[in-house]
Amino acid sequence: MSTNRSLKLTLKVWRQAGPGAPGHFETHELDGLSEHMSFLEMLDVLNEKLVLEGGDPVVFDHDCREGICGSCGVVINGRAHGPDAETATCQLHMRRFKSGETIFIEPWRSEGFPVVRDLMVDRSAFDRIISAGGYVSTNTGSAPDGNAVPIPREDAEQAFDAAACIGCGACVAACPNGAAMLFVSAKVGHLAHLPQGQAERESRVLAMVRAMDAEGFGNCTNHYECSAACPKGISVENIALLNRDYLRASLLERG
């Protein structure tokens, strides 16, 4: 292990009392931070300090802290999940920062994700989009035999790549239009590549786009910032697939 470099940082943290309340940046100085800390551990240190001083800790979302649950996520110096590619906030380490640096920490900003408090946003819009069609309506029974349904390797790969989406919302946060297309297309694309997803392929894409539009997200203008911010590297190829499937399903829809 390398030597333990100690960091001194100035944090500009977004504080907001509740949904719709006016927010502001609060400045905090932290000294003696280990470079081996994760970004969330650094926030834990800040909160301990705040509590000891009798202040309110900064509210932020987190759970697994190993990059697979999609709970965490803040915008760090203008980048969703911070400067590292394909890395969630929990797996970002403080060695990525220089001592003396000022770091702006902001919540995901989108009309579809109202701020609950400070850095925590309400992402239930994603749950409602999933409820609209991000599933396969079939009686699964007991676990089927592994190779009972043959799936070409290429299809399995593409389905898995799309299914890697953890629903963190970084795509929405990074999109200049606050669009949720990468998330929705990952969910649509995941099932569109599998035989089990075919029966509801058309009704699914129509229902999920409708649900997405109802949540107040913006429209995709193909900047591709979403994919660059995605901790799972979801490809915008999925967005083209969603567009293709939506146009086809919309044209062929009966009644």
């Binding site: 927010g23 915008v75 980048r79 702006f104 239009n177």
Partner: peptide, 11 residues
């Protein structure tokens, strides 16, 4: 309308 609250550091 989808983003009324602006980022301090433009993403």
């Amino acid at each position: 309308k989808a983003r009324t609250s602006r980022y301090a550091v433009q993403p």
